[in-house]
Amino acid sequence: MKQVWLIGGTQESASIAEKLVANSWPCVVTVTTQSAIALYPDSDLITVKVGALSREEMERLIETKNIDRIVDASHPYAVEISESAIALSQQFHLPYLRYERPQVTEPDNQQVITLDSFKTLINGDYLTQQRVLLTVGYKALPQFQSWHEQATLFARILPSVLSVEKALAAGFTQKQLIALRPPVSYQLEKALCEQWEISLIVSKASGKAGGEDTKKAVAKALNIPLILIRRPEVVYPQKTDKLENVVNFCHE
């Protein structure tokens, strides 16, 4: 039986899986964390595979699971996964579709500063003497290690052992961390900023699903800057921001 390879781990990928099940389309979902399994419907049509895959493991998955097409609904900043999936789609001559979260646009919000990369942020003077809330994921935290003496850094991370361990290794103390699973409400995000007396928020431009609109609203309410790191540039063969287009793609 032909199957869709759904590269998941996001809430949007869970919505895609639900739609595929509703249309009786079998799929193999790959996620990197055990906790992500709970996102997906309990169905005989879905197989969820947990753990980071090497290129060889991806090739084996395509061959052994009779993959017919690839739907890439990974996180907007999971560049390596997307690039590997694109290369494999070309290698095996499989149709590929990227589901991309819609961008959040608020041109009137003067609190927002958009930068092209973490490198630009780290090498600039944006963080000096600021009380900074980082909502950028644990993988980015080591890049801020050199700033612990020049700024007061706090981080909101996922409630996982790995996230906490990586944050502590990056120089954050327990008092500088809070572990919460998104979505985080406006009230909670605002209260957290007030509790820590945050003067600057740093986040990724990860769309509404990533809480970008909430952070913009909090920054505006507290009259503090929000720095957004722009999404990486990836050349996708084809992409969409509409779930119905993904279903149509699977039925082509």
Rank of each mutant, 00 (worst) to 15 (best):
K49P: 08
F92Y: 10
H75W: 00
I70P: 04
Q91E: 10
S82F: 02
E63N: 14
A87G: 03
I37A: 06
N66I: 12
I37S: 05
R55A: 09
M58G: 15
V71P: 00
S82E: 10
S43L: 14
V50W: 13
E83T: 02
E56D: 12
A38F: 01
S54K: 04
R98N: 01
K49N: 15
K49T: 15
I86Q: 03
E80N: 15
P41S: 11
D72C: 02
L61C: 15
V48C: 14
D72H: 04
R98Y: 04
P102Q: 08
Q91A: 03
Y40L: 10
Q91K: 15
Q91D: 09
T32G: 00
I70G: 02
L45Y: 10
S89P: 01
Y99A: 08
E80H: 15
V31K: 02
A85P: 03
V48A: 10
S74A: 11
L39Y: 06
R60M: 15
L39D: 04
R60I: 13
T30F: 04
S35L: 09
T47L: 15
L45Q: 12
Y96K: 00
P102S: 06
A85I: 01
S89C: 10
Y96L: 01
P76Q: 10
E100T: 00
A38M: 07
L61A: 14
A85E: 05
N66Y: 11
P95C: 02
Y40A: 09
A36K: 04
T32V: 03
S89M: 03
T32S: 08
